Simulated scan of single mutants.
Amino acid sequence: MSRRKKNRAGDDTNEIDLTPMLDVVFIMLIFFIVTASFVKESGINPNVPEPNNNPPPDDAEPNILVRISADDQIWLLEKEGERRVDARAVRSNIERLRAELPKAAVIIQASGAANTGVYVTVADAARAANAPSVVLVPMKD
């Protein structure tokens, strides 16, 4: 009889305790919820002015105009006209024009189809050239 009692007692202790497994699952769930809530997408917050159809006054300080075309070409407007500029030479050209026009702001006129990286490169070059302000103006395509 003692053998039967031992077998019955052994059957009761053969259950699997799920508490540690549930603890691990809940800890993992909390970890993923906390880490997912801190993920933020980075974006560009360009300084876009409000539309103004009034022409500037005749005695206004001229600005430095940089155009970015839809095929990611960079054009710099000068007295002689527009000329294409390499992305690596944007800073030196802006510094040269700023020597002639010290109070001139840099206006970047970018096409909507242009690559954002090209705009960032031009804006960074203008800031590195100590431009007093850098403004993005969307180009009408």
Rank of each mutant, 00 (worst) to 15 (best):
M21N: 06
E78N: 07
L22C: 08
G112V: 03
V85G: 06
V135C: 01
A70W: 00
N45G: 05
R96D: 11
V106S: 00
V24R: 15
R127D: 09
S42V: 11
N45M: 08
N63G: 09
N7K: 13
V134M: 06
D59G: 03
I108Y: 00
N115P: 02
A99L: 13
P102C: 10
V90R: 00
F32N: 12
D124N: 12
L77T: 15
V25F: 14
D23S: 14
R91T: 09
I33L: 13
M139T: 00
T116R: 12
I64K: 04
V66P: 09
A113I: 05
V85H: 02
D23K: 14
A126E: 02
A129E: 11
V25P: 03
L101A: 10
P56T: 05
G112E: 08
W75A: 15
I94A: 06
E80H: 06
K140L: 08
I33P: 04
A99R: 14
E80Y: 05
L97A: 07
I27E: 14
L18V: 13
I64S: 04
G112W: 00
E95M: 10
N53P: 08
M21Q: 11
I74C: 04
A123Y: 03
P51K: 05
E82C: 05
V66Q: 06
F26N: 14
V24M: 09
V34E: 01
T116M: 07
L22P: 04
M139E: 00
S2Y: 10
D11A: 13
E95Q: 06
P62D: 03
R4H: 10
A89T: 06
F32M: 15
N130C: 01
R3Q: 13
W75I: 09
R88Y: 06
D71T: 09
S133E: 15
S37A: 12
A113F: 07
R4I: 14
S69N: 05
A113Q: 13
E95W: 04
D17I: 02
N52F: 00
K103C: 01
A123G: 02
N7M: 09
N93M: 12
A89K: 15
Q109C: 02
S92L: 05
F31K: 13
E41P: 02
I94Y: 08
V90K: 07
